[in-house]
Every structure is written in structure tokens, then in C-alpha cells.
Design a protein around this nucleic acid. Structure first.
Lengths: 144, 144
DNA sequence: GGACAGTACATGCACGTGCATTCAATGCAA
DNA sequence: TTGCATTGAATGCACGTGCATGTACTGTCC
């Protein structure tokens, strides 16, 4: 009565389970470490990183929330609250967008950039630890 | 002042972002679809699947919660409550473990197996959709 | 036997998330 | 101009999660 998966389906399931395992390992460790040492969640760090990248691109260029949204995998409401937390922590600034007054532009504060720079080594270290080729990942080329 | 990532680090970050994107796409869609049509969350389905596999292995073999825990990526408390939900929905049964009365053994009910069998095609379909080679995944071999 | 550390699971609590809704601002049409 | 659908973001709410703790049971050492 229980139908079996086709080989293609079995492959997908295996791929999915490995993805789940890697994601869980990395996300869990990232959240714990970044949280303990820098008061940042995984997504908080991710947002800071996008802001740093955005600012580095056009110097004083500030990102709109609507630009940020697609790059972090969060609902609109979760992103809104995450930004509120970052603002309360003094890491970003919310300002009205001049060209479209519905929008909000985000700017990284000095403290925000510093926090990011401090946290980045740990972030990379965790990625190295969790993605760097254990967990039975056959055929993963680290440099590719 | 902002130090750049080494090539190895940049690769890790790219790998991490792709993993995040795939995980978000699949997990979000799975949760929504399974939830809407079968009243199951992603992790609920995962647990049912482990129970089916466990039962198929030794027929009437019932899994202990402590055996289940390492395979699903949840905290012990989250798993406990998830099982409570499944039990309330009539999909699994909790019973005291004879050999170690601290432990709980889980058995899949008929309704639980049916629900799983019904949900599985949708689960596979979502995996196919989200893992089956879009999202700029260069070099992924679908059958591998 | 009794005391005690360790294990298995449940529960109180705080928190982050998604959904639905709300409010403000925009663009377009009449 | 007014009216209306649409978009950007914030908020009420319910819910799932992790951490810390509690409770019950096991095994060990004395």
C-alpha cells in the first residue's frame, strides 16, 4: 500500500535532507554565537551585511527597505520588526525616503558598521566550520 | 578600514547564501502547501516520514522519541510539543516504553499513515519545484 | 538499602515569525 | 480637482521555537 519513491524522488529527498542538516547546523550555531557575543541574530547580521555592501557600492547610498526585502528571506513584517530592533540598538537609522514618502531609507550608523566588522570573522568561522566539508557531503568542491 | 573576504571566505558566503535561498524557498512553500491542504507543518511531515520508515523497517517497531530527536533538526522541547500536536490530531500514539519507563515510544496510527501517504506527493512535488535546478545553481546534477 | 549524578521527556516563559489588517502616500483616471 | 486601486511599511494576533527548569526514572557508588 505504501508506494515507493522513484529514484529521482529519492534523490530529491536525499538532497533535501542534506540541505536541512546543513542549514540547521549553520543557522543554529550562527544564531547562538552571534547572539552570545554580539547580540545579533543570524538575520540581523545578514541585514547589516547587505547595508554594508549597499553603502560600499555608492558610498553614502542608503538602502530602501523594499530593496532589502527580496535579499533576506523574511516576511515583510518580520523585516520591519528586525529593522526596528536594529534601530533601537543604534545600529541603523530609519529615515523617510524623499522621492517616495511611503518608503523608508536605512543608513548604517558607525556603531552598526563596527558591530558588523567585529562579528564578521565569527560569522565566517562558523560557515567554515559547518559548510566546510563534513556531514558526508560527497563531491563538494570547497573552492568552486 | 573594511577588510575584504579572502576568496575562500567569499566562496563560503556564496555557498551559504544559495543554501539560505533554497532552504527558504522550499521550507516556505512546504509549510504553506502542507499546512493548507493537510494541516501539517514541514517538521510534522518530517516526523511522520521517520515514523513510517521506522515502522516499515521492523513492522510493528515503534520509535522512541530519543531516537527520533537526532534526525529532525528541532530542540527537544519543540519535538515534544510537535509530538503532542500529532497525538492530539490522532496521527500518532504516545506510550510508555517498557524497558525504560522514562522513555516514550511513538506509534503511527492508521490516520497518521494515511495522512502521510496523502501528503507525500505534494511534498515531493514541492521539492522538485524548489530544488529541481533553478535559482542559478550551476553544476547541479539532478540525478546525482 | 540510601544518596546522587545522569537521562528522558514535559512545561513556563520570552521571543521571533507569518498572516491579516491598517494607515499613509502614490499614480491614474474621470 | 475628486475618487479609487496600488504600493510601502507598521501593527495586532496566534503560533512554533529555544532556553531554562521541573519531574520522573535509571544506573552507580557507598
Amino acid at each position: 500500500m505504501a508506494e515507493l519513491d522513484s529514484p529521482a524522488e529519492a534523490g530529491l529527498v536525499a538532497q533535501w535532507r542534506e540541505l536541512l542538516a546543513r542549514h540547521a547546523a549553520a543557522a543554529c550555531l550562527l544564531d547562538r554565537e552571534l547572539g552570545d557575543r554580539f547580540g545579533l541574530g543570524m538575520s540581523e547580521f545578514e541585514v547589516l551585511e547587505r547595508l554594508v555592501e549597499g553603502c560600499d557600492a555608492g558610498d553614502g547610498h542608503a538602502l530602501r527597505v523594499s530593496e532589502l526585502a527580496p535579499t533576506v528571506h523574511l516576511s515583510q513584517s518580520a523585516l520591519s520588526r528586525l529593522i526596528a530592533r536594529l534601530e533601537k540598538a543604534g545600529l541603523v537609522t530609519r529615515a523617510m525616503c524623499e522621492s517616495d514618502r511611503r518608503g523608508i531609507v536605512l543608513t548604517l550608523t558607525e556603531a552598526g558598521r563596527e558591530r558588523y566588522e567585529q562579528a564578521r570573522p565569527l560569522h565566517r568561522e562558523v560557515l567554515e566550520l559547518t559548510l566546510g566539508g563534513e556531514l558526508g557531503n560527497a563531491g563538494e568542491v570547497p573552492s568552486a
